[in-house]
Design a protein around this nucleic acid. Structure first.
Length: 1048
RNA sequence: GGGCCUGUAGCUCAGCUCGGUUAGAGCGCUUCCCUGAUAAGGAAGAGGUCGAUGGUUCAAGUCCAUCCAGGCCCA
């Protein structure tokens, strides 16, 4: 047999394991890279996943897209090196290890445990999780070089990062500064924006209105107090100033209460009077602009820490009149806006809260307390001293540490910054020339982010990260070190083998190299944001510039990167920012941005909901191909998409198995007929039946569409075209060509083989497993000279000479007419098996249809002949309808009038095919042929179906001859059923015996003997009982009994 | 609170760029048909206020405005 049999039933996951083994044995991935080595380079960067947990189904998503396009490009002749990468550092890894070690007290536990030991545990944790990710990567068929993977914790990677930081430092863009950042007092570290974003939730805080008695100017004489609102009473200890908006009107109002005849005077922003006082009657004593209040002094609420030269009103544009009183309490150490105001007024920044979140020991009232815990004591104290005007509860969204749930504190922290705001203009320019998919991201989400760029808070006061390579002496001289070699030269000893992590690197000190300074320089304690590590991968993966200079330069920037949308503030940004800072050029040209994966109900997958799908379970239940197809082709890549078992089942049935079974069908009949591709003579395409030409024409249209869609990074469009073609091939081409396959027609076999061969290559980047297996059986087995994997083949080229648009149109008409005919059949109640004498068709351009195509209509509808409706019946009703799209263009507002006249039949055809329409007013207008839809329907006596301007009518009159033919068809089907039921092979020859008690049946079978014999592969058909003992098949409705036996 | 994305049949999604005849496909459901590869295929039916409202227009799922809901990102 030319082909290995392809079972119709196939276990896709099991097949995938065989394919994986074959790829391994034949080293296919490496050979695909080697084979394309001379091709133009197409650079892809792998965004490193953080190895701090088990890989989930969402990790599969980006990795499928990251696999598709490199495979596609490789088949098109590009060289696409793909290197895996692992993001190793960062707080997530530390937290995982802390949890495992049972740490509860944050940094104190780590210090007690020992930094060297702790970091060793982090390294182990990373290695373990990388193992899981590698397993996922291999199982899903993501081709990426795992052996050569870059790890951000490798010394050569860290050296590259150091080098890049030195470039930024030398440009004066890496600076230390006090900055208010969201800070977790438990973890003892500032949090980056995206970390903060993960921990917002609703909390109830005290909302207090406090009197700040005015101590200068006319307001003081009136005994007035500023009414100040805050939701963080603990910051009142540090009150330094009060901010007002310069352009807002402020009112000093007298509040009279029943028990207080004199009342008190409070200052509140005028627009907020109603909100603050509600029904309480107030009398406006004085109105003034905020700017007039500047420098008004007041008596501070607490006197527990020393804050010199302060406590007056300042102006700030950020003050709003939406909440509170319009007078904003300022504590510069605990608010970014506050700090800005303090800087402008030269106010001191006093911070009585320690890094662990507790007030300094020994302070009155709050000494040693956790900052939040101090709130009630402070409120009580204010109340006792008569300063508290009102206390409420205030529910708002407040950030918490995303892992340990500690409420964050906004905290002025000495910190290292990259002055990205300096290169903001360049970033915007680089963004402008970046090709975003979808394009809206460029000016939308990502562009907005760049527009609002703030300096990058780079440092982290943690342990497991790339150490900031800055050494400092007591004179505050800074030395930025760009490599271990440089460090060696400063230190005067060979440090090439040093683990550049903490604590080892902290132990390296040297004499400060600044001129005339001989003090000891020590590394600053901070490590850097692990997002910087990831963004440094274009050169970090090469160890550039200390190694592989050429390799780096050749592969920068990347042509293509692809990650989910959450990376706009993550990797997409850090890649572009570092690229622009260090090389004055963004690190990527095209970026595909994916939506997120959710469950079948559209909910986010989370451990809490228990709806997390284990990717490995999905692989073993449905197959990696099914999951790949679902992610690539269902819904568009940038919208949120659902994943679930039901959807995967559908992909398997509808796409993968239909494809497989079409191949299985080919193999079945190729083998039955001993057909080998390339051996039997095959007519030129031009001389093959129209159906073959159609299948090939559609094939090349699909090749064109899929190629264009993938060039446009739109796999969904490609997938739709492929799905449609698989259906065309299986349910029209094969269906209509069955008889030719039974007969072993080389043209049919060759056509289907060619279609499947090209289709397999088209599908290969999407579903690499099943296509490789089909390729193995359909191609490799018979053409050993071709590469031994579909993934080593070339991408199909469009053969324009095979594309026949007119034929496509005609076949589409055939299929529409068949559809109508079936509808008419169903309506008539006459089974399709019963032949009818004729069908009548009315459709534009039907008469131009070649007889060969009309024959398909006749066969499909089981009618003897197909004729035109007009030719067959004088009793035809004609209706007309206007084509609004055409009419609208010509008549605009008069369209309905013209359309109505057409529908009323007030029109005549002229010679050129256009129409003259008479309007009710007596006017006539001329319209083009395509402005009128003409529909013919028979007047009576026919079963018809009509759609748009196409009609099919069936002649239901049955002659005895037709009835007998129907009976023969019925018997043929029964014998076929029996063959199948007895497990005969499709090519087995049989002997058939029959007897009939019904004369009509007997006559029919005698008459149809030859047809019956031919159809059921019977070498003998005898009207007799068999001599051998065989099981009879009895058909009561026909009065028939038959027996059959296979011939050995 | 702000920005972006999404909202079309019970479910998953096309269609919207560029307005036009009765809004489509697949899955699921009911009935029937077909079956010499198929876990298939076909026909009919049920199922749609195209998120809502208003506007532009001869004509709106499509364009505009406002609103609502969900998601993401940010506060």
């Amino acid at each position: 047999m030319p082909f290995r049999p392809m079972p119709a039933q196939v276990d896709l996951p099991a097949l995938e394991h065989e394919v994986l083994a074959r790829w391994r044995d034949r080293d296919v991935f490496a050979r695909s890279l080697a084979g394309s080595a001379d091709g133009p380079l197409w650079t892809f960067y792998e965004g490193p996943p953080t190895a701090n947990g088990k890989p989930g189904t969402h990790h599969v998503e980006a990795r499928v897209f990251k696999d598709l396009f490199p495979r596609f490009r490789t088949m098109k002749g590009f060289h696409v090196p793909r290197r895996a990468g692992w993001d190793c550092h960062g707080l997530p890894v530390e937290l995982e290890v802390e949890k495992r070690l049972g740490f509860k007290r944050g940094k104190q536990d780590i210090e007690d445990y020992g930094v060297a030991e702790f970091n060793a545990r982090c390294r182990e944790s990373v290695q373990e999780h990388v193992g899981e990710f590698s397993r996922l990567t291999q199982r899903m068929g993501y081709w990426v070089d795992l052996e050569a993977a870059y790890w951000t914790m490798n010394p050569s990677y860290i050296e590259s990062v150091w080098w890049s930081l030195k470039q930024i430092f030398d440009a004066g863009l890496l600076v230390a500064d006090h900055r208010v950042t969201p800070y977790c007092p438990r973890c003892g570290t500032g949090l980056s924006d995206h970390e903060v974003a993960q921990g917002y939730y609703e909390v109830s805080d005290p909302s207090v209105y406090v009197r700040f008695p005015v101590t200068s100017g006319p307001l003081a004489d009136a005994g007035a107090a500023l009414l100040v609102w805050t939701t963080t009473p603990w910051t009142l200890i540090s009150n330094t100033a009060v901010a007002v908006h310069p352009d807002v009107s402020y009112a000093a109002v007298r509040v009279v209460r029943p028990d207080d005849s004199v009342g008190e005077v409070l200052v509140v922003a005028e627009p907020l009077l109603d909100k603050v006082f509600g029904d309480t009657p107030v009398e406006v004593v004085q109105l003034m602009l905020g700017s007039e209040l500047e420098h008004t002094t007041y008596s501070r609420p607490f006197d527990v820490v020393d804050i010199p030269a302060s406590h007056y009103v300042g102006l700030a544009d950020y003050v709003t009149v939406e909440d509170g009183t319009g007078l904003v309490h300022q504590a510069p150490a605990f608010g970014a806006d506050d700090l800005a105001v303090a800087r402008r007024y030269g106010l001191p920044v006093v911070n009585p809260v320690q890094a662990d979140g507790h007030f300094t020991e020994g302070l009155p009232l709050v000494g040693g307390m956790f900052f939040k815990a101090a709130d009630p004591f402070i409120v009580d104290d204010l109340r006792a001293r008569g300063l508290l005007w009102r206390e409420e509860k205030y529910t708002h969204s407040y950030p918490h540490c995303w892992r340990c749930d500690t409420p964050l504190i906004y905290y002025a922290l000495p910190s290292w910054y990259i002055r990205t705001t300096v290169v903001k203009g360049r970033l915007l320019e680089e963004n402008e020339r970046t090709d975003w998919h979808p394009p809206t991201i460029k000016r939308g989400r990502y562009g907005d982010w760049l527009d609002n760029n703030i300096d990058w808070a780079l440092s982290r006061n943690r342990y497991w990260g790339t150490p900031l390579p800055i050494w400092r002496c007591d004179e505050e001289h800074l030395t930025c070190v760009g490599s271990l070699a440089e460090l060696s030269s400063y230190a005067g000893r060979d440090l090439a083998g040093l683990d550049p992590h903490r604590p080892f690197v902290d132990d390296v000190t040297f004499e400060c190299p600044q001129s005339e300074c001989a003090l000891t320089a020590q590394r600053v304690v901070e490590v850097i944001d692990c997002w910087y590590d990831a963004g440094a991968m274009p050169f970090g993966q090469w160890g550039y510039p200390h190694h592989n200079v050429e390799e780096f330069e050749r592969s920068y920037p990347a042509q293509f990167i692809c990650e989910a949308i959450d990376q706009t503030r993550g990797w997409f940004y850090t890649l572009m920012a570092i690229g622009t800072l260090v090389f004055d050029r963004s690190a990527y040209e095209t970026v595909l941005c994916l939506g997120h994966i959710v469950d079948e109900q559209g909910r986010k997958m989370s451990k809490h909901l228990g709806n997390v799908l284990d990717p490995f379970e999905l692989f073993e239940r449905h197959g990696a191909d099914a999951l790949r197809w679902l992610m690539l082709c269902v819904g568009n890549p940038w919208s949120t998409r659902r994943v679930g078992h039901g959807l995967l089942d559908e992909v398997v049935r509808k796409v993968l198995l239909t494809y497989w079974n079409t191949a299985s069908f080919l193999v079945l009949y190729a083998n039955a007929n001993q057909w080998v591709p390339g051996q039997a003579p095959v007519p030129d395409v031009a001389n093959r039946p129209m159906l073959d030409r159609w299948a090939l024409s559609e094939l090349h249209r699909v090749v064109q569409e899929v190629d264009a869609a993938l060039e446009d990074f739109d796999p969904t469009r490609a997938g739709r075209a492929i799905t449609h073609y698989i259906d065309d091939l299986s349910n029209w081409y094969v269906r209509r060509s069955r008889r030719r396959f039974w007969d072993g027609d080389p043209a049919a076999l060759a056509t289907l083989h060619e279609c499947l061969e090209v289709l397999t290559r088209l599908l290969a980047p999407f579903v690499p497993f099943v296509t490789d297996e089909v390729h193995e059986r359909l191609v490799c087995d018979v053409w050993p000279d071709l590469p031994d994997s579909v993934h080593l083949r070339d991408w199909p080229k469009v053969d324009g000479s095979l594309v026949d648009a007119a034929l496509s149109e005609q076949m589409a008409l055939v299929r529409r007419v068949v559809e109508l005919g079936r509808a008419a059949r169903a309506d008539s109640g006459v089974k399709t098996r019963q032949p009818l004498s004729r069908a009548l068709v009315s459709a534009p351009s039907w008469s131009a249809l070649p007889a060969e195509l009309r024959r398909h209509v006749a066969d499909e509808l089981n009618v003897r002949e197909v004729d035109t409706l007009a030719a067959a019946s004088e009793l035809v009703t004609v209706t007309y309808k206007g084509n609004f799209r055409v009419l609208g263009r010509q008549f605009g507002a008069r369209t309905p009038e013209v359309a109505a006249a057409i529908a009323a039949g007030s029109l005549t055809a002229d010679q050129k095919g256009s129409w003259t329409v008479s309007l009710p007013g007596g006017e006539s207008v001329t319209v083009d042929a395509d402005a009128v839809l003409r529909t013919e329907t028979p007047k009576e006596g026919w079963t018809t179906a009509t759609a748009a301007n196409e009609t099919v009518a069936l002649d239901l009159e049955l002659t005895d001859e037709l009835r007998r033919a129907g009976t023969v068809r019925e018997v043929i089907r029964l014998v076929q059923d029996a063959r199948k039921g007895q497990g005969f092979d499709v090519s087995d020859r049989i002997e058939l015996w029959w007897t009939a008690t019904d004369d009509f049946t007997a006559t029919a079978l005698r008459e149809g003997r030859d047809l019956l014999a031919r159809e059921v592969l019977a070498t003998t058909v005898a009207e007799d009982r068999p001599h051998a003992p065989l099981a009879p098949h009895q058909v009561e409705e026909l009065g028939l009994t038959f027996w059959l036996r296979v011939i050995d």
